[in-house]
Design a protein around this nucleic acid. Structure first.
Length: 451
RNA sequence: GGUCCGGUGGCAGAGUGGUGAUGCAGAGGACUGCAAAUCCUUCAAUGCCGGUUCGAUUCCGGCCCGGACCUCCA
């Protein structure tokens, strides 16, 4: 087994990964706020971390993967106010849509998928510990984290408190001692979700939920914390501050991983800019595996510009892999290809790993069943190539349609035999118009759908 | 304004202190009635200027350009 190296965003260095407990590698990834369908940028993050977890499961005997669902948030409240749909209905519906979308792109469910609203008790416990430790204070019904009480504040994102004040675009609330202090708990009016607390009826601030849920399911110190690079500050910086102050002497997350943003025409895909496609939008244009391949074709840390051209190339690459698997059936129980695994262990270098896939496909196309087996095995680790090749090429089977296609092919073969090529080409063009592509090989004519 | 990340062939996208992966596209060829698929051959790149070095795309400095964060965001 190769050593695993990961780029730790806190040190900005590639480091050898050594889990605290190899029998239980613990990973926390910031999950979605559920008020709308996930867009492709969201999906990219969770797909990268899905591959990470698959790799960890291959390397270590035990992994606990926790990914939360944020079901209390002002954006949810705003959506409910705008649409009239009750908050609970929005979170239940979009939470289920999120899970369905993850499944459709091939992301395995996490081991624990906790909801924020089920962990208010833990959040209140943490806030009380922070107040007791002198790291938080109550003011005007709010509880705020005192940034000045944590000397390390800014260490994760590489900022100093001065940096933060210099260009601050925020209006500083009057009850804050420091401009950088952030809300742990805030008062909630009767028409908004709220829970009883020592500070009155209220709801949690944005960051405390992740501190509470990671603590509850992974303990005060764990191995890997992942999320989008846009969460580095303030979300992760604040999460870290809360957790380290609530549990003095703990490590919180030992390695921080941040994925790059998905872009459209050079700009970050985001809901606020309105330049987003939901996964479902893209699924209407290309098969799920092609989308997944596209998302893995760039390194998780770099930005990835989405384009229809890229999507088409991804589809062609998957075509090629399935063609190799179809032409040369994989040997049973193949070992994991070594170079492929080494590439993934180099900070999840999926582009290099994919280059290995192409090499294996070449050998498989030349008839090497071991290479074909390796291709299948490697694809599996990426969450790809799990279908039967015939299913990929022909899609859902429909006996009536298939029989009609077979009849047309038989008619074309007869025409070719009679050297009536005009008729043969007409038949082929008619099928192509229906999305059915023919391939004449030495052993006869086969067909596939132009997915 | 501050902090951070990046600029590699036509496009996508890795790696590396010593003749620059991989895929797509392009060119030529094989196969085919023609396609498709496959195979063979091939063209083609390290933003700019300095520095360190025997040697830099890789390390350092400056500049230019792009992006992210500093406000909700994967």
């Amino acid at each position: 087994m190769p050593d695993l190296f990961l780029h730790n965003s806190q040190t900005r260095k590639r480091e050898l990964f050594v889990p605290a407990d190899p029998t239980n590698v613990r990973v926390y990834v910031c999950g979605p706020t559920v008020y709308d369908l996930p867009h492709l940028g969201n999906v990219r993050a969770f797909t990268n971390f899905d591959v990470l977890v698959r790799l960890l499961r291959h390397l270590y005997p035990g992994v606990t993967y926790v990914r939360n669902i944020t079901d209390v948030d002002d954006k949810i409240n705003a959506r409910a106010a705008a649409s009239g749909e009750p908050i609970g209905a929005i979170t239940a519906r979009t939470g289920a849509e999120f899970q369905a979308d993850m499944a459709s792109i091939g992301n395995l469910p996490p081991d624990v998928e906790p909801c924020a609203t089920a962990h208010i008790t833990e959040m209140i416990m943490l806030i009380e510990k922070l107040i007791a430790g002198g790291h938080a204070y109550a003011a005007e019904g709010h509880v705020l984290f005192a940034v000045a009480s944590f000397a390390q504040y800014g260490a994760l994102s590489g900022r100093t408190p001065d940096d933060l004040i210099a260009g601050a675009r925020i209006e500083v609330a009057p009850y804050k001692r420091d401009a950088g202090d952030f809300v742990l708990w805030k008062p909630s009016p009767p028409d908004l979700p709220g829970w009883d607390s020592p500070w009155g009826r209220g709801r949690p601030g944005w960051h405390i939920e992740c501190s509470a849920m990671s603590w509850r399911y992974l303990g005060d110190s764990f191995d890997i914390h992942g999320g989008g690079s846009d969460l580095l500050f303030p979300h992760h910086e604040n999460e870290r501050a809360q957790s380290l102050c609530a549990f003095p002497g703990s490590a919180f997350a030992r390695v921080w991983l941040h994925n790059g943003m998905l872009q459209v025409n050079g700009e970050k895909m985001s809901k606020s800019l309105g330049n987003f496609f939901t996964l479902r939008d893209v699924l209407a244009k290309a098969p799920a595996e092609a989308i997944r391949f596209l998302l893995l074709s760039a390194r998780y840390r770099s930005v990835l510009d989405f384009s229809d051209t890229g999507l088409a190339e991804a589809r062609d690459a998957i075509n090629r892999f399935y063609r190799a698997l179809q032409q040369t059936p994989p040997a049973p129980d193949p070992p994991m290809p070594e170079q492929f695994l080494t590439a993934l262990c180099d900070d999840l270098n999926t582009p290099a790993a994919i280059a290995e896939l192409h090499g294996l496909a070449n050998e498989a196309l030349a008839g090497d069943t071991a290479a074909s087996g390796g291709l299948k095995k490697a694809g599996d680790l990426l969450g790809l190539l799990h279908q039967a090749p015939a299913t990929w090429f022909r899609g859902g089977t429909d006996d009536t349609v298939d029989a009609a296609i077979d009849a047309a092919i038989a008619a074309r073969i007869a025409a070719r035999k009679a050297r009536d090529f005009a008729r043969a080409d007409t038949i082929r063009a008619d099928l192509a118009a229906q999305g059915v592509l023919l391939e004449d090989g030495p052993s006869g004519t086969t067909w596939r759908r132009a997915n």
